[in-house]
Design a protein around this nucleic acid. Sequence first.
DNA 1: TGGAAATGTCTAG
DNA 2: TAGACCTTTCCAC
Length: 329
Amino acid sequence: MPEGHTVHRIARQFEADFVGRRVAVSSPQGRFADGASLLDGLVMIGSRAHGKHLFLAFAPEGAPDGASVEVLGLRAERWLRVHLGLYGAWDFHGQVSPLLPGGGATASLGAPRVRRGVRMGEGERSIDADDAERAIDEPDAFPPDPVGQVRVRLLTDVTAADLRGPTACVVVTREEVRAVVDAAGPDPRSTPGAEGEELFVERLTRRRVAVGQLLMDQAVVSGIGNIYRAEMLFRARLDPYRPGSGVPGEVARELWRDWVALLDDGIRTGVMITREDLDDGGREAALADRSLRHAVYGRAGEPCLRCGTPVALAEMVGRKLYWCPGCQV
DNA sequence: TGGAAATGTCTAG
DNA sequence: TAGACCTTTCCAC
């Protein structure tokens, strides 16, 4: 999936283009028709991410609905919770704000898509004026006709957001939002500072389960997926099979701090560049070519960038695990 | 046209 | 642990 950084970027996109606006909600595919009718015509009052969950808060126009308790810093009784799962993606159409000053707008955030032989970046594709695909993908008419299986369409006067392929897309109460967040491990962006770090270290080091498995466990830490998992263990020189209880506290702290830094970088750039050996030129090249972004992920059989040992590939709890058996001990 | 693959998670046995 | 589920895309046949 879109790992945690992508969901935070999606939350920002909604903050920029939907929050404060009245939203028409529909389900072109039909599978979310009931939920859509509960939200249609309400104003989006906030947008939050925790790990891989996206929460969009709604309230009646001109009448914040009087919720007495804040959840994720918002008083809202009606929320849309979305989890993209493995293939989910949001597509934005119409007026789409750039997420970086001076940057291009983002058309699509979520699972990678391959189109016309052009591999899109992980999670998203830029549609600045030079992008030849813009003419293909952005018809003049607004809103554009839904393409494919659009579970939900959120529509303001000027911007449309289409959701396809989510694992979860459901209208929830603030209590249900609270429950999901409480059950999840810390996310550096919503559990910042020492509290998140302490929680992470405690949950990682108390169990004998393999650290490679624990990093993917969203109850231990939120937002890490298969790529960040492999790359963080490589950066920490940790054997993925080492039990969490065998990871020294200081090493666990370093893992958390690395996650904080990687997540910040991913949110800022929209791209997972996890190699430590790149200079500015190398990063520039990696932005354009995803095969240059990672040290071990997707590089099975190729020599380790640190010690030359062939990168190993195995299955861990049903997911592909890449690591260097030479220098991850 | 069918199968496989993809940054994920849940449930039944 | 296997299977189900969400969707799109490429590739072998």
